[in-house]
Amino acid sequence: MSILIHIKNSLKDPIKIAQFLLALFAVIYLVLLADDFFVFKIPILVGGLVFWIIDYKKRAFPVLWLTILVLLIIDVIGSYFWVANHHFLLCFMVLSMITFFYHKRSSILFVNIQTLVVIVLLLSVFQKLFSSQFISGNFYYHDINQGAMFRPLFYLFPDSLEIANQNVDNIKKLKESDPNLEHSIAVIDIVPNLRIMTVIYAWLTILVEAIVALFLIWKPRSTWTHLFLIIMICGILFTKLETGFMSLLAICGLFLCTSLKQKLIYIAILMVCILIIMAKMGYH
């Protein structure tokens, strides 16, 4: 019982816990992303962390956040067209943390995070609506028939996995041929009625993203808003292990929600995503 009270007390200040989890995610993300520049990135990060620990009492500068931002911006400058979309979102969230360090107004931080998530969702809806490949269902049809989505379901339906692998092999063979001969191959549906299902799923994706965005504008603290956001995050993770982006959306949800249950759900989602990222699975 005392543990529950302790957890409840710790979660009273959602900004503190969200800040800590954002820093944790950013550090793990930067370490995993360090790759070829490990030699100079890791010492900078360790330096930032050490200074943050030493400066614990004073906290005159947002050293850790500045260190994270510098490392993120180095990647943006060096690999602008290669970094993931959530890399940009992470930059803006870290920038919000740095400005919060100075203005100390939670209402401003709240608007920062709320507006950033709304922009992400509305842009995602906009880009999908203006993509004929997406709204026709062809995008999902391509990825699902190659087994690139809904991987957990393949454990239940091994026959579908076999068909997906067959599609991948056929496409591989086709790619070995001269494309100027304009050959085409027949795609085998991994489940019956996939054509209709992909069209419905495409429109459902747009609808859910649009609803979450509108609810976040209209009632950002409402239970319904966070219920939809949680459903959307879980739905995306089930469709594809987009652990990097979903971690950030869960942290954004944590910044914006007020209920204890919602906070615990967001933390649980984030922890699962971080574990998957650390196991080097998923997309981060």
Binding site: Y80, F81, W82, V83, A84, N85, H87, F88, I119, V120, L123, S124, Q127, K128, F130, S131, Q133, F134, F139, T205, K240, F245
Partner: peptide
């Protein structure tokens, strides 16, 4: 790519 949140649209 490019930070326009157009992933999974094509």
């Amino acid at each position: 790519k490019g930070g326009g949140y157009g992933m999974y649209s094509e």
